[in-house]
Amino acid sequence: MMEKPVSVTEGLRYPRPKLAGIPKYMNVLWRSFNKKNIMLTLGIIFATFIILVAIFAPVLEPYDPTKMDLALKFIPPSAAHIFGTDNMGRDVLSRIIEGSRISLSTAFMVVIFSACIGTLVGMISGFWGGKVDMIFMRIVDVLLAFPTIIFALAISTVLGTGAINLVIAICCIQWTSYARVSRGEAILLKNAEYIEAAKAIGNNSLQIMFKYFLPNIVSKILILASLNIGSIILYCASLSFLGLGAQPPSPDWGAMISDGKEYMRYAPWMAIFPGLAIAASALTFNMLGDGVRDLLDPRMRDSVKTE
């Protein structure tokens, strides 16, 4: 019945349709250099770069971003002014570098505040359920019915313009998505067997919430937050494009595009470079978000399972 063993190295796969034209080493390379690693690595590198630029902005700026010199206006990109100058003779590169501070800090503040509020509300309403859940979720439903931009415009009208008011305005809508996610997670967890087991060994409600719910929810929230930063940057930019964000003369990417749009025909660099900056940073943080999402799923982390 059982004969002499055959060496596995002589192994033969099931004949499968071959992918034409792809050399074998490419395949191996592709497998060892896994997709999610690339996303995460690139995301981290670019994000670190952007954040470092924002931190060391005063050192990196070749010119003072707010200094006006009308003799130097509308210089196209050149060796002296890599990204050119604007209608007031200010260096666009310096303004973009300075603007990264404002744009990033607004975006981060929005994400942090809305994540904190949303997680807490969602966790409580998911854990207690019943009337508490009902009330919170109806509030969320109402807020979700407004488009973010319109609601932010309305809030800015009440509070006035400015960076802080912009943060408040966007937060008012953004926390709802965090609340939704953390409520969903909390409801799933509530029925998990290990929560029941945790109750059985004597944890009280507060301990269950903070020891079991929070760590499990936080990973989901982190994923959402890192995916969200990109779109928050876009929101901030579009609101400041509409004139609701940081006020002149402090440079803001959205406001710079807004200024540049009038000179689009003969000085396109004024709008193009801030636009690229917005696109690049949104893309970077989206990539980071994707990478983080793959990384934070505990079941994808380790341990080879057979069968």
Partner: peptide, 22 residues
């Protein structure tokens, strides 16, 4: 089934699951 061997390639390793199953 004669001397069926199945292994899985996992991270450059071969995990040998079936050994000469007949």
């Amino acid at each position: 089934i004669k001397n069926l061997n199945v292994s899985f390639a996992v991270d450059d390793n071969h995990v040998h699951i079936l050994n000469n199953v007949s």
